[in-house]
Amino acid sequence: MAYDEHLADRIRQWLKTKNTTYLEKKMMGGLCFMVDDKMCVGVVKNDLMTRVNPEDYETLLQQPGAKAMNFTGRTMKGFVMVEPQGIDMDDELDTWIQHCLDFNPLAKSSKKKK
């Protein structure tokens, strides 16, 4: 198992409950949920990957289980990884996903390959 299927199911259920249209893409060794053709939230191994407003980045890193996203030796500002202990409770997961959806309209879409 490359990523936590149970966490992916929790995200799917949350997005469906909120009537959010999304597309799933396997990437970065995990699963990403795209909203409006933009990376929004995902699962990498057992962690929640979140795309949040860079203005809130430092504050969100102070939350339980939160850490900077660093795949290439370089920290990606605006992306926060949340370890399982930070999303055990549904209300914790709800809060993180809501941060992602709140930022989504402001996020830039990645360049499409031709």
Rank of each mutant, 00 (worst) to 15 (best):
M49D: 04
A8C: 10
H99D: 03
M27N: 06
F33E: 03
E24Y: 09
D9M: 14
V82P: 07
E5D: 10
G29I: 00
N46R: 09
P84S: 09
R51L: 08
G65T: 08
Q63D: 00
N19A: 13
P64V: 11
A66S: 07
M89G: 00
M81G: 09
Q85L: 09
V43I: 12
G29D: 01
L23F: 04
F33S: 05
T20D: 00
N46D: 12
L48S: 02
S109T: 15
G78L: 05
D90L: 08
A8M: 09
R10P: 03
V41K: 04
W96P: 01
T17E: 11
T21I: 05
L31V: 14
E83A: 14
L15I: 09
G30L: 06
F71G: 14
K112G: 09
L60W: 03
W96L: 03
V43K: 10
E5G: 05
K108V: 11
V35I: 13
M34I: 06
T20R: 03
D102N: 15
K18H: 15
D9K: 15
M69E: 10
C32T: 13
N104C: 13
M69K: 09
G86W: 06
N104D: 10
E24F: 11
K38Q: 12
D37W: 04
W14M: 04
K26V: 02
Q98E: 15
C100I: 09
R12T: 08
K38S: 06
V43N: 11
G86V: 07
F71A: 14
T21W: 00
Q98R: 15
Q62Y: 01
K111V: 10
R51W: 11
W14I: 01
M76R: 05
V41C: 10
D56S: 14
K67V: 12
L7D: 13
G30T: 02
D9A: 15
D56P: 02
Y22L: 04
V41D: 06
G86Y: 06
D9N: 15
T50Q: 08
P54C: 05
G29Q: 01
F103V: 07
E24D: 05
T17W: 03
V80E: 04
D90R: 07
E24C: 08
I97K: 09
L48Y: 01
R74D: 09
V35C: 11
C32E: 03
K45P: 04
L61S: 01
T20P: 00
W96A: 05
L106W: 05
A107L: 02
P105M: 10
V52P: 04
V43Q: 08
V82H: 01
P84Q: 08
G73N: 02
M49A: 13
I97C: 08
